[in-house]
Structures are given as structure tokens and as C-alpha cells.
Design a protein around this nucleic acid. Structure first.
Lengths: 334, 334
DNA sequence: TTGAAAGCGCTACCAG
DNA sequence: CTGGTAGCGCTTTCAA
């Protein structure tokens, strides 16, 4: 068995090839000024020894790691997975590696992940915040780490952000239901402390107000999305004195659970959901779609602009939504 | 504006706190042997200067990076996103950071990603292969990097692998259709050079043979899953001399596209798909489900066992599938 | 075209 | 309990 944990270094390659360490460095980095014959010899030694440059050592000198960190809520969620892929696509173009970590909506975990990435000296960070206080990033930013926030704005600090038109999107979705003669429309959203959830709720409220429709308290539930919570919410809005005829769901997970509940309960309700999701077309679900991949792409491009030396004003990019009509939102009131 | 790109080092903290560099190191690493009073002073300086340890330098001395790399096909695909999350959950327990990269089924890209991770000196690697030759990893393995393969076995080298019971899973899915009195059953799978695709095809063939059913050549298509390809495949198997009454789909993407095509064509066909997917329950799709998260978890645990010093024989863990009956697979022949 | 030496920021080892 | 020194593997600077 080969000696465990031993790795050839440039020094080893150098003595094997009978050249100076610096010459090996030149070959490895493709510096032109090496005689082809010498370079060939060095490459032979590299192959024979199975040498691989230690980028940690390189980083120490160069100061750039060609890596960025992505902090999101849950990489297992299709929304974030799509976003992640878009970020990766841009990173690849810049020969940059990607650290990914899930915060699970926990501010402490977000902070720990972020700082761990910083300790690894990532060049930049793309953060989907779980926390509402990012002052802990100030020393990092001062030291030159670029940070772009996505989906939710930074807390207490000034930084680039790429956000969805949450209010307008929800407004349009609810208005679509209203235009279908619905008057009593329910809203199930994520917990109210979540940025996007509260904005989408605002959109709902504004749309109802704009149509001159009162909102009954029993129609609205904001909660972290679990099956039990959503079942209760539906029960409340369907069995009160003025039962709803339509439902607006605040995100993809809520839509999925609500559909499942409505399905098993056999309830016929018009439904519009915020977020598109796979096979929504087959299920015929009308949604307010975010441009998830575009958000990731734009955020990453912004990050690399900053890394490239761009020092302009902090930007806040707003990404629009689009209503996709598929049937579930066009069901008439019962 | 703060000086850009400058970061305090341990030396800076040391002089600021009026202690030796080594004392700062002790405080940062929680070495007990520091007077509380001194430690306090050091911590003050750290906070004031916004110091953050440079892990690249640390790695250089310690040799361990507390990071692993995950190479998969596409982080945007729910199957891999789920797997990725399971890996991350284990990594977190070991205070280990995760690099992720998508190979897009391209062997060269797999190799480039893998070696880039190795150059960063990740402690270990979890690879969902795109390539069928992993000899390029031999020097890395010799140097002590642990590698576990998932979903597909390593090519040309011996290493741990966590695999799904592909043949048996497909066999059961097809047998389920046969038990519903179907005789003419189609198969659409991924390209035949893809490991899982060819095994699932074998399962199909074996099931048909076991039932004494001949397979018409027009019933089988193996192709990279695109809408046009699948439409053609369906056309072929539905409009030939002996049209199929049932369809077995080789993975989640194929199932989704096929369902969409069948839907728009208005064709009534029994369908069973390999891979479960979100909302399959609502759509009533019968599937052969893989334990995706379990595969990721087991692979990661195996990796950390190796990293913990386990030197046992190379393992090949087989993960079973389960048939989930939801209606689409129980449609009788037309 | 090639080489020698210094040093990036940190930890291991040995002294005090 | 605290400090000094060597050196991890590489790139940078200067010299030959």
C-alpha cells in the first residue's frame, strides 16, 4: 500500500526532474518562459509522482481562492436548488468553486456557515438570509469579501440585493381570483417574520382593499408550513360563517400541502400559488411564477462584477413575476 | 472607507493585545492553558480588529481541511438536490464544509471538478460518476483522500459505492404492470451508456421474459430525455403494429415528460415510473421509489468512517426500492 | 531561460 | 501559563 497521507510537493517534483522548484512552479502555472524540453521533463515527473498543486498554499500567497460561498435555506427545496444551479453556472464561467450550505431558516446557523466560508477566505458570498442582522459581516466586507443578498434584503447593513416583486406578484395573483368573481379569498403564508411572507400578505391585503373587499380574520393564516397547520387553516376558512371560495398560497410548499389537503377533503376551491413548481402544468395549477434561475444568475453576475473591481453604488435589483394561468385559478365560486 | 483587502492577522492581534502570537493562537483554538484575563484581552483585540482566522494557512500546517466535495450531475434536479441535502446533514455533524459541483453528465467536467476539489485538499469526495474511468483518482486516494461513489459504481478502480437495486426495482415495476394483465409494455430509458439506465432496462427485459412475454423492438427507446425524443418514442410504440397498453419510465425526468406528452395527446396508458417525485401522489402516479436521502446519508456516513480511520474492505451497499401504488399503474389495458 | 531566497499566516515543538 | 522558532507548499522578487 502506498504511504498514506503523503503527497508529493513541488520540491519533490523538482528534484525528481532535476530542476529548481521555481521551474516546476512555472510549468504548473503555464508561465511561458520555460524551455519546451525542460517543461516536458517536469510534466513527466508530475505524471509519474501523481503531483497535484496544493491550492491552500497557493491561496496563502495569492490571496484569492477562486471560490464563493452560497448560503440558502435548504438545498433540498427545488426553489433553492434551481437558484443554486444558476449560481453555479455563472461560477463555472469564472473558474470558481462553490461552497453550499443550508441554514434551515436559523440565524445562528446562517452566521456560522457564513463565517466558516469567510475563514476559508472565499472571494465572495451569496446569501439568502435567515437572519435580520448582518452587521457581523462588516469586518468581512471591509476586508474585501463581496456579498450579494438574494430573495431577502440584508439586515442592518448596506449591500447588493436581488429581490422578487413580492407585493406586486401577490397582488396580481389575488386580483386574478377577484376578477373571476371571487369575493371571499383565503391566504395561507409562511410565518409573518419571514420577509417574503409578510410582503406577499401585503399584496393580498392591497388587492382585496383595491377591490373593496373586506378580509375576514378567519381567512388568513401565517405559519411555518406543516400539514397539520395547513389543515387547520383550511378548516377555519372553510367552516366559518363566511367560507372562502378561493385560496392564495404564499409559496410552493404551502401550495403543495394545501392541494393535498383539499384533494383528500374533496373540496372544490379556486387556487393560485406563489412560486411555480414541477408538473404544476399537469396538475393545472395557476401560479405566480418567480424567475428563480434568473435571480440566481443576476446575483452571481453582480457578485463577479464586484469581484472584478466594480465599486459602484449598492444595487437593489427587483425581479418581476408572471401569472401562469392553468385552470385551478379560474374555477368559478361554488 | 476601510483599506480594501487588508485583513488583520494573528500577529496584528498579538501586538494589539500585547501578547505573543502563540498566545493568540491558543485563544483562537480554545487551548486551555491561557490565563482567563489574558484570553479576555486577546478576545477584545480580536473583536476590535475584526480578526478571523485564515483557514488556508491553518490547512497548510494541519493537513486537514474539514471540507468534502460532492460531484453530481445537476444540483437543480430534485433527485440530486435531495441527495445533496442528506450529505450535508451528515457533514454538519462532523463540522465539515461542502463543495458542490454539477458535471452535467460530462466526464471531462467530472474530472476537472474532482481534481479542483482535490487541489483544495478536501478530505473526501462523494462522486456520482459521469465518467467510467476513475483511474485519475488513484494518486489522490493514495494520498489519503477518501472517495465514496453513489448511484453508479466507480470505473476501473476499487472504491466504496452506494447503489440502488436498479434491476430489481425495474423488474418489480414492470411485473406490477404485467400483473395488471398488460402484455405489451413500453420502456423509455435514459441513454444506454448510462449505468442506471442499462440496468433498469435489464430489469424490464427480465420481467418480460419471466412472464413469457416477447418484447417488440418498437416498444423500447433509450435516449437522453428530451421532449422531442420522448414524443417520437411514444409515437413509435403507440402507432406500430402492436401498440403498447402500458409504459415503464426509466427515471423522474422521463416520467414527467412522458406524462405531459400522454396528457396532451389524450392517450390512456398505464404508467409506472422509476423515481418518486414531488406531487406524484396528487397526480396519482405509481412509482418505483428510490430512497434518495438514505443513499446520500449512507454514502456520507461511509465517507466519514473512512476519514475516521476505518480501513476495512471496500464496501458496496445496495439500497432497495419500493413500489408505491397510486393509480396510474393500475389502469387496465385498453 | 533558470534559480535562490524571502515570506504568506498559521501551528507544532521545545524552552522558559 | 507564555513565548520563540521552524516550517507547511507555494508564489514573488531579484539575480544570474
Amino acid at each position: 500500500m502506498t504511504a498514506y497521507g503523503t503527497r508529493p510537493t513541488m520540491k519533490d517534483v523538482a528534484s525528481h526532474a532535476g530542476v529548481a522548484l521555481k521551474t516546476v512552479s512555472r510549468v504548473v502555472n503555464g508561465d511561458a518562459a520555460v524551455r519546451p524540453q525542460t517543461a516536458e521533463r517536469v510534466r513527466d515527473s508530475i505524471a509519474q509522482l501523481g503531483y497535484r498543486r496544493n491550492d491552500s498554499a497557493r491561496v496563502l500567497r495569492v490571496g484569492q481562492t477562486a471560490s464563493i460561498g452560497l448560503i440558502l435555506e435548504d438545498i433540498g427545496d427545488p426553489f433553492y436548488a434551481t437558484l443554486s444551479r444558476a449560481v453555479e453556472n455563472v461560477a463555472v464561467q469564472h473558474d470558481t468553486l462553490l461552497f453550499t450550505g443550508s441554514s434551515d431558516e436559523d440565524p445562528d446557523r446562517e452566521r456560522a456557515l457564513t463565517l466558516a466560508f469567510c475563514a476559508r477566505r472565499v472571494d465572495g458570498l451569496i446569501v439568502i438570509p435567515a437572519s435580520d442582522d448582518h452587521t457581523y459581516l462588516l469586518p468581512e466586507i471591509a476586508a474585501g469579501i463581496a456579498v450579494v443578498f438574494v430573495d431577502r434584503p440584508p439586515g442592518q447593513i448596506d449591500a447588493d440585493a436581488v429581490l422578487t416583486e413580492n407585493v406586486r406578484g401577490a397582488f396580481e395573483g389575488v386580483t386574478h381570483l377577484l376578477s373571476g368573481s371571487h369575493r371571499r379569498i383565503g391566504f395561507i403564508g409562511d410565518a409573518p417574520n419571514i420577509y417574503t411572507a409578510s410582503l406577499r400578505y401585503s399584496g393580498y391585503v392591497e388587492a382585496m382593499a383595491a377591490a373593496g373587499q373586506p378580509v375576514d380574520e378567519s381567512w388568513v393564516t401565517m405559519t411555518s408550513p406543516g400539514q397539520a397547520e395547513i389543515r387547520r387553516a383550511l378548516h377555519r376558512m372553510l367552516n366559518g360563517p363566511s367560507p372562502v371560495t378561493a385560496l392564495f398560497c404564499g409559496n410552493n410548499r404551502i401550495t403543495a400541502i394545501a392541494l393535498r389537503e383539499l384533494w383528500t377533503a374533496g373540496a372544490q376551491l379556486a387556487v393560485v400559488g406563489f412560486d411555480d413548481f414541477e408538473l404544476a402544468d399537469l396538475l393545472g395549477i395557476t401560479v405566480v411564477a418567480q424567475s428563480t434561475a434568473e435571480m440566481g444568475r443576476i446575483a452571481a453576475e453582480l457578485l463577479f462584477q464586484r469581484l472584478g473591481g466594480y465599486r459602484g453604488e449598492t444595487k437593489r435589483v427587483m425581479i418581476g413575476t408572471r401569472l401562469i394561468v392553468r385552470g385551478s385559478g379560474e374555477l368559478p365560486p361554488a
